[in-house]
Design a protein around this nucleic acid. Structure first.
Length: 251
DNA sequence: AAGCCAGTCAACCGCAGGGGT
DNA sequence: GACCCCTGCGGTTGACTGGCT
């Protein structure tokens, strides 16, 4: 039962690649490229490795046109932005970054960016919840979505985004306030965490403009505003936290 | 010096989907 | 349409490393 393995496990080597194996694969790819299939490449290259392992090693490590580590602030901002728009589509995100691999971007997100965002979120949430007694964010009456991005009201020292974002989501209106969905109330940054929260339930932090650095600014700026000044946070929300589309429902 | 712990990243696993038969 | 093979992708694991106690 179960899935047929892509190669005979007992017959192939696993684990870290030795320099000799790297040389063999690099040399083979340089001479012949992957003419044929990855499955048969190990045999042709004289490697006792699974074809998938060879492919991964080549694409993520040995390929000459890739960079490792040393992500710049600009790249970080772009990753935040693309993640907020697309979720964990690492291959897509990597394709927008020059000479980066999906594995590298994914690791960078999981080890650095996600934690940075979580820390900012926690700080903002703590400040916000300790300062408010009501559980409803004071959302403004609906206003037409702007056709152009606003100038940034609170440039963030935390993350260098320049574009504001709004949230496209279904809201309810109780006659006085617009009520954000519960998930957003408890974790306004949940969407940025991806699959387990808002992103999987249809929330989508979308950019007003489609500039390359859009998308993640809301989190950073709200964090900054909330952490430093509650009024500023309210003002920030008033400015940007409004229904974007006709899915707004009045109850 | 030794043990522990957290961070990092290479590598693996399993699934989805495309293409060929 | 059903099946198989292969590739690509995203999630996860585990080895390694450096810092701290």
């Amino acid at each position: 039962m179960g899935r047929t393995p892509c190669c005979e496990r007992a017959a192939v080597k696993r684990g870290p690649w030795s320099p000799e194996e790297d040389d063999a694969l690099r040399d083979y790819m340089r001479r012949y490229g992957n003419n044929g299939s990855w499955i048969t490449l190990p045999h042709r290259a004289g490697l006792r490795r699974c074809g998938k392992s060879c492919r991964l090693r080549w694409l993520n490590y040995l390929r000459p046109d890739i960079r490792h580590g040393g992500f710049t602030d600009e790249e970080d901002a772009l990753i935040y932005s693309l993640y907020s728009q697309n979720g964990s589509k690492w291959s897509l995100i990597a394709s927008k970054l020059e000479r980066r691999t999906d594995n590298d971007v994914k690791n960078h997100w999981n080890t650095k960016l996600k934690k940075r965002l979580a820390a900012a979120s926690a700080a903002a949430a703590a400040t916000f919840s300790s300062s408010r007694t009501d559980s409803i964010l004071p959302l403004p009456a609906p206003t037409p979505a702007p056709t152009h991005a606003h100038p940034h009201p609170h440039p963030s020292p935390l993350l260098s985004f320049s574009m504001p974002t709004v949230k496209a989501e279904t809201y309810t209106y109780d006659g006085g306030d617009f009520l954000a969905p519960a998930a957003a109330l408890h974790d306004p940054f949940a969407a940025a965490e991806g699959s387990t929260s808002a992103a999987s339930s249809g929330s989508n932090w979308s950019a007003v403009d489609n500039g390359p650095a859009d998308g993640g600014g809301f989190f950073a700026d709200f964090c900054t505003a909330a952490a430093s000044d509650l009024d500023a946070a309210d003002q920030f929300l008033t400015g940007f936290y409004y229904p974007l589309d006709p899915t707004v429902s009045l109850v």
